[in-house]
Write a protein that binds this DNA or RNA. Sequence first.
RNA 1: GGGUGCGUCGCAUAGCGGCAAUUGCACCACGCUGUAGACGUGGCGCCUUUAUGGCUACGCAGGUUCGAGUCCUGCCGCACCCA
Length: 393
Amino acid sequence: MNFKVLKKSKKSRARLGIIETPHGVIHTPAFVPVGTQATVKGLTVDQLKNIGVESLLCNTYHLYLRPGDKIIKKLGGLHEFMNWDRPIWTDSGGFQVFSLGAAIEHRVGKVASIFPKIGNQKSHRPIRANEPITDHHHEKFARIMEEGVEFRSHLDGSKHLLTPEKSMAIQKNLGADIIFAFDECTSPLHDYQYTKKSLERTHRWATRCLRTFEHRTSNLERQGLFGIVQGGVFKDLRVKSAKFIGALDFDGFGIGGSLGKSKKEMYKILDWTVPLLPEEKPKHLLGIGSAEDILEAVERGIDTFDCVLPTRLGRHGSTLLTASGVALDVKSGRYAKDKKPIDKKCGCYACQNFSRAYICHLFKAQEMLGPILATIHNLHFMEKLMERIRKTI
RNA sequence: GGGUGCGUCGCAUAGCGGCAAUUGCACCACGCUGUAGACGUGGCGCCUUUAUGGCUACGCAGGUUCGAGUCCUGCCGCACCCA
């Protein structure tokens, strides 16, 4: 993997670049759709290519559990398996440490503006490490240790130990072009002490990943390995992490973990960390993907993004409409007689061919074409957004 | 003509003396940011000062009871069976 900065903005830290991988190039800034289980839910690879998608992000944890990384390796690797010949990224399983662990316990997402509305709680006190779980319906599936993370499979309850070494081995078997170091994504409700402890462990895991990872002579032939900066909302921890991870021999960097309780906090986190990372290497903001957030992050020097938001919103019947990312709830009955396309200025397959009324009907009737068309629209929207950003730089 | 059963919030259901009343569907609103998510949460008689509030409600009319969707009588309607 190689990265070249082609142009730098004079107004901000934004830059235009190109990532070269064994399976082709990624023009940055780029949005990377998520295809967790070796598929972007609902879409064929041809549809993705028509939209202009250059790369996809798949998931180590999910593919390890099913069908198994060894099977995928035998079948010729992930590219061959899913018939996608363009670049693939794989997440390390680090996010599942959170989503199957603290997220269940704390009932939150990684951006804490998504606070739970359960009960009458208006505010959340920070959660201390090892605090007992009181609600049995919210028992977590992940237990974190120095060695790695013990998962209880969400599929069949079986136990699996995922370690930095194992994550690297799985990701090697899957054969993605860009892979991530195994980390712990912390919760916005974790306090300073816990976040610090977790950060130090993630740093040790990062060096273990690098030690396991095979560096070959030619950069272009081999996988690129990205290290992940953690530290939650705490400035000194983020700075410490950016310095530590940034000094290691990674091919690029991800900014991960809890990104605070508001968008402002997220932007601050980027302001603290991005300038401390090697300038010539690509920087990825993990799991962020609203149009507004992407614009702010690009200005702060982020090159690539992955996010489930456009695909998930599409499946759930919300279609992205405007540049600010405001969604139109196309499945709502108020569009049942609306002849207009989702967005009359949009050139996507859905908007060129179908009315809101038709797509609304498909959702009401639970026809699979509804989520498919809405997903096409949303990914097209993201692709155009990134294109516009690249032109502007 | 005789008999049996049944009539509950748009539809379908639960309810067997303390009920504005269960559940599913439909409908409506909101949420979703490295995918346990084609999902989740809430609402769904009317009114209001939104409350340990008021009113009106389980085919219709009476009755028993402190209290009736629930028990009794009659009527109406529907279904099935026997003539």
